[in-house]
Design a protein around this nucleic acid. Structure first.
Lengths: 108, 108
DNA sequence: AGCAGTACTAACCTTTTTGTGTGTATGAAA
DNA sequence: TTTCATACACACAAAAAGGTTAGTACTGCT
């Protein structure tokens, strides 16, 4: 019945995950990118109505640095840029599923 | 191949979960309580060496309000208090497992 | 010529989260 | 009597996260 405790160190897996996708927005952004193939900034703004433009850009930038999303610059003018989930990013699907599951089982 | 997008509203499941177990410490505390039956404050401090006493107490208090942990006061003096995971709290196990899984698949 | 749309950057400010340090009640042990 | 340990509370400070506003460069539309 008992599970082994995770040793809480400077770099335990829980903390790694929190650093990658912690915060108010990253998982929400990833979820939209997982379910939409490719999205532009303006489309993400519509899908996530209450995020500020600054946070959206900022989070996309750090997600790209973490290699969880790709940024495709079409080099057109006026600028056209698309965002896509990466393979690593797609792993967040299971995590999100579990969060949804947790929320549901909590609420009943 | 595509998943349905979660509609991002004031209360979507991702946000519910973030409110319950978001932040730097809650999941770490829950994980220890899941794997230890019952723990006192002083024991949690040893298991989570870098948490401050204030944060530990504060987080335990909000976890109790959310009914994710139980607080058992033995009414002794000097005070003796134990913390236990609740049924609802135990649901976090799957979430933590997924976070561990996510961190591992990210790192390879 | 003037305005709108795109994908940003930068400065600044507010709110939230996290941390530090001190104080309290109690009884038992030294 | 002084000291210790427990499980806090409280005031305050620092740091991190998030938000607001303005501005840029370009071009197409009217």
């Amino acid at each position: 019945m008992k599970n082994k405790p995770i040793e809480v160190t400077a770099r335990c897996p829980i903390r790694t995950t929190l650093e990658l996708v912690g915060g108010k927005w990253k998982l929400i952004i990833l979820q939209q990118l997982i379910s939409h193939e490719e999205l532009r900034l303006s489309e993400l703004k519509v899908l996530i109505p209450d995020i500020s433009e600054k946070m959206l850009i900022q989070e996309l930038k750090t997600l790209k640095i973490s290699d969880l999303v790709d940024r495709i610059n079409y080099g057109e003018v006026p600028p056209r840029v698309g965002y896509r989930i990466t393979e690593k990013g797609r792993n967040a699907q299971l995590l999100i599923d579990e969060m949804v599951h947790f929320a549901r089982s909590y609420e009943e």
